[in-house]
Design a protein around this nucleic acid. Structure first.
Lengths: 113, 113
DNA sequence: TTACCGTTATGCGGAATTTGCATAACGCTT
DNA sequence: AAGCGTTATGCAAATTCCGCATAACGGTAA
């Protein structure tokens, strides 16, 4: 019974719809760093289309605005996180924090042999 | 920032491939109860095809046999769990146990206001 | 005023995955 | 030899995922 690993996944939901998980957390963080959705997608190595869709889904269910967007103009446009989005990231991070270690411990303790 | 719920998922992997999660746990338990894959599928309200595929995937990656199957004969055939599979179920259950509560606590503690 | 540029926004078709219908194979029982 | 209930699978339909192509936008520079 070796080579077996335990894995966990945590996410937040609103009305039963996914709001934020690991992938979307990465996206928001990259947006914060890069100041645009386009830059974020490039940094993450995913298509702009995919990043846009993910953000779309998040905003569809979030009870508050996550980003402020602008099109055209200087630099072509931009996307920035709202303060609520930053709070959400904080909260999500602290929920995740230490979870894997907790589960690993539990798993190791349960190990036969 | 209300109406937001935290959710978790736990599963075991071997070589990075999923071995057992909630759905497959249910399947194995139903097989144990019913003594056949067919009965298990009916109990769970899923198609036989789907149950069979899930079991197929599990066995593909499990480092030990999960079930003993027989075709034809009295009763048409049967599927029974091996003792290793029963151990696996035990182990998975105890890893899961209490996880949601743990996370809920963490989440509640992190709540602003 | 007009052409250009880098970004956001989105339609759409193809790829990949999931689902379930249909049917074969099996071996005991009668 | 026929029947029964199960396991085993091919295959097509349905669904979801992915990314190419292109439009829209508004500041900037000529």
């Amino acid at each position: 019974m070796n080579r077996v690993q335990v894995r966990t996944k945590v996410w937040l939901e609103v009305d039963g719809e996914p709001l934020i998980g690991d992938g979307r957390e990465r996206l928001l963080l990259a947006i914060e760093r890069g100041g645009s959705l386009n830059a974020a997608a490039a940094e993450l190595g995913i298509s702009y289309r995919k990043a846009w869709s993910q953000l779309q889904q998040m905003e569809k269910h979030a009870p508050f605005a996550l980003v402020e967007r602008s099109k055209g103009g200087k630099g072509g446009g931009s996307t920035h996180l709202t303060s609520e989005a930053k709070e959400l990231l904080q909260r999500f991070a602290s929920v995740k924090f230490g979870l894997n270690e907790m589960v690993d411990e539990k798993f190791a303790a349960e190990r036969p042999e």
